[in-house]
Design a protein around this nucleic acid. Structure first.
Lengths: 187, 187
DNA sequence: TCTAATTTTCAGTAATGTGTGAAATTTAGC
DNA sequence: GCTAAATTTCACACATTACTGAAAATTAGA
């Protein structure tokens, strides 16, 4: 009922949150969203909007917008706390799960639109004029992106355990590819 | 000696260039840089700064800054044209090569700094106060990023042919991982 | 259904990022 | 080393994005 106690942020967490703020712009989210995300990751207990605003020294309305954005990234979990009308938030516990979500969301925002554009351009009737070189390049790009997107999707279907294994394999992939060469008889 | 003829841009290329401009901000480069890159990709012949500026309707100084930025992404190739003092530019021919460069550069800008930050935080003496949960999360994140970065590096060492093969393999990776399970006897 | 707590929206403002022209610098040929 | 072409730098103007407080909307309990 009284205002929730204000948060203690350790110096370690402070650096972490600060960094996520600075990197936010490079990651295509803004500073505030990066900081909110970082704060929720390192907070064991879910936080309400007032606590977030106080911890980051930002206005309540800014918190609201930031949470909305974070929600659109599928990185926000709301939890109810008995006897408290406020909404409490956290991020998924599993960092690998978060990373996978992040990659999927970035794919949607950064790659899919380009794939669509290339598809529609390549489907159009050929215009007059010599743009065969340009069309060739767009076609190459389209095929590569399609391949990459398909591969990313396949990776998303792998269970975490499998994915970790693949990551740890590293250049051992080379041996595996050799193996498939021998099995299938292709180069 | 006279000004080089002005460029004809096909409608297809126009869409392509426009799209790269719009996506630029999402990709962490700006509109102009995206457009210059797109223009150079679809132009068979190398272009000089004036041609670029004219094609994109931007000032000469803006072209200069854009080229500088593109250079910092390792996506620019300068070629000399006999009998012309102007510098001519193009992008690498191979789109896969460009994609690999892009991924590497984004890793440097978007992932490496975070890895460094996490390392330095985790190396610091433990502060007083209970931030063990936060440290735990940072440690998990550090390990995951390290794994991912290592894996990306391994991929960069693969020859293009090999990389394409891996991409085409898709979730066929599952079968291969099964195979290694059986061979090595691990889960 | 009413009320008070909580959250969201939005118009205005602050902050950041982008583009330009003019001036400074560099470069290649003479 | 001089000169003119070419390129880069930079201060300022312009555009976009982010943040705030106030007001509107929503929600949960009485």
């Amino acid at each position: 009922m009284p205002n929730s106690e204000s948060l203690e942020i350790s110096l370690h967490s402070e650096s972490f949150i600060q960094h996520f703020g600075e990197m936010g712009s490079r990651w295509g989210i803004n500073r505030t969203v990066g900081q909110i995300c970082a704060l929720l990751v390192v907070s064991e207990a879910p936080l309400n909007a007032d606590q977030i605003g106080e911890a980051l020294h930002i206005s309540r309305s800014n918190v609201s917008m930031g949470l909305k954005e974070l929600h659109s990234w599928n990185l926000l979990r709301a939890v109810a706390i008995a006897g408290d009308r406020k909404d409490y938030f956290t991020t998924p516990d599993d960092v690998l799960e978060m990373a996978r979500t992040l990659i999927e969301e970035r794919r949607k925002r950064e790659i899919d639109p380009t794939l669509s554009m290339l598809r529609s351009v390549l489907l159009q009737e050929k215009q007059v004029g010599d743009d065969s070189y340009a069309l060739q390049k767009m076609s190459e790009m389209h095929d590569l992106i399609e391949l990459l997107v398909g591969w990313l999707n396949e990776m998303q279907t792998l269970k975490s355990q499998r994915l970790m294994k693949l990551l740890k394999l590293g250049s051992g992939v080379n041996k595996i590819l050799d193996l498939t060469d021998r099995v299938s008889g292709r180069s």
